[in-house]
Design a binder for these strands. Structure first.
Lengths: 197, 197
DNA sequence: GACGTTTTTCATCATGTGTTGAATTGTGCT
DNA sequence: AGCACAATTCAACACATGATGAAAAACGTC
């Protein structure tokens, strides 16, 4: 924010690197990959663009550094699956919301989702994430026809995440997690184990 | 595709304008607004970039020309609402899918959604589209607490649209519309008129 | 066939971007 | 005090992009 003029190292021991990373995170989360410029990140961190390159190399490198998703979806979902099909819908949603509501993780996750939308990461979600990562895990929960049930679950989950975190639809974004769980849990439960035509 | 060298007007009566527009549509749909360059559109239409500017003015103008959503959501939704709450979930979804499955309308709609995602059209969806356009219409269907019910409906609808049309999740994209209606309709019905905690 | 009009390309500009290398200033070690 | 090293900025390059104005080729009309 404040104008810096002098050249060379700053006095004190400011963790400039962390500030740059934070600025990059929020910018990627808000404007996506192409919408984020290194110059804007640098400006928002009160720093010269060259410093961004000095710490993190290219823009791609900065992006992966900004994501840093310290969450293995399989590890997170494992307990949900292990507890069996009863009440799995609510447990699944509760787990998911607890991860996304963590303020440490949220910007990275939002940035990831945004970039998956705009650049052709759609293919990645379609061919990689759903069938390879989350599909097999949830497959342990459903009694039959996983190829029908899993996408239905995915559609409702995607909708919640987009509405609550990316678009921040007011009532959805402010709704207490437990209310959401109570309201949407049954939907997921039906998709997972209910009677489907 | 073929290399054109000669200057001036082409022989015959090719509708180059339409070709440019089509190229713009698919590019906007696939790569979003920022991901689309005028030069790429021109190349894909086998045309000089200046021609794109000649027909449609600035890039923004080209974008709105490419959208051309000849669909007024309120007009489309009106009959759904008029028929009353019984079976509204299925009717709503059926209507929606019939619009999106129309190959004329699809690229424009996908492009619109993509751009709403990446640029900060999120605000537009949040503050404009949902509360102003679709909210009041659907409000005629719900018995109480619209501020809870409408966003839930929105979340499931958004998820379906993203899964089926934007990401093109395989089983969701290929599923016959009526199967989807039968499977997801009850969810919407519950969000609209069911017992919610 | 002459002529105005439309369609098309060429050449060019200004701007914003990612990236690089050198220069400057502070910090910590000996 | 001296010196290697890290942190930081400056200046600049190469490139892609959106945009503009003028010129060339085909068409339609009289």
């Amino acid at each position: 924010m404040t104008a810096r003029t002098s050249r060379g190292r700053r006095p004190g021991a400011p963790d400039t690197r962390a500030e740059v990373l934070a600025a990059a995170r929020t910018s990627f989360a808000e404007k996506g990959f192409r919408g984020t410029t290194i110059r804007a990140v640098a400006a928002s961190a009160g720093v010269d663009p060259a410093l961004v390159h000095h710490y993190f190399g290219t823009k791609d490198d900065l992006f992966v550094a900004a994501l840093q998703i310290p969450v293995d979806p399989r590890a997170v979902l494992a307990p949900v699956v292990a507890a069996g099909p009863d009440g799995a819908g609510e447990r699944l949603l509760r787990t998911l919301l607890s991860v996304w509501d963590d303020p440490e993780l949220r910007p990275g996750l939002v940035a990831l989702v945004r970039s998956l939308m705009s650049d052709d990461g759609a293919g990645l979600v379609r061919d990689g994430f759903i069938p390879v990562v989350v599909g097999p895990v949830l497959a342990g929960l459903v009694p039959d026809r996983p190829e029908v049930r899993i996408p239905l679950v995915a559609s409702q989950v995607i909708g919640i995440i987009l509405g609550r975190y990316v678009v921040a639809l007011p009532p959805l974004a402010q709704m207490p997690a437990e209310d959401l769980v109570a309201r949407v849990g049954p939907t997921l439960q039906r998709y997972l184990t209910g009677d489907l035509p």
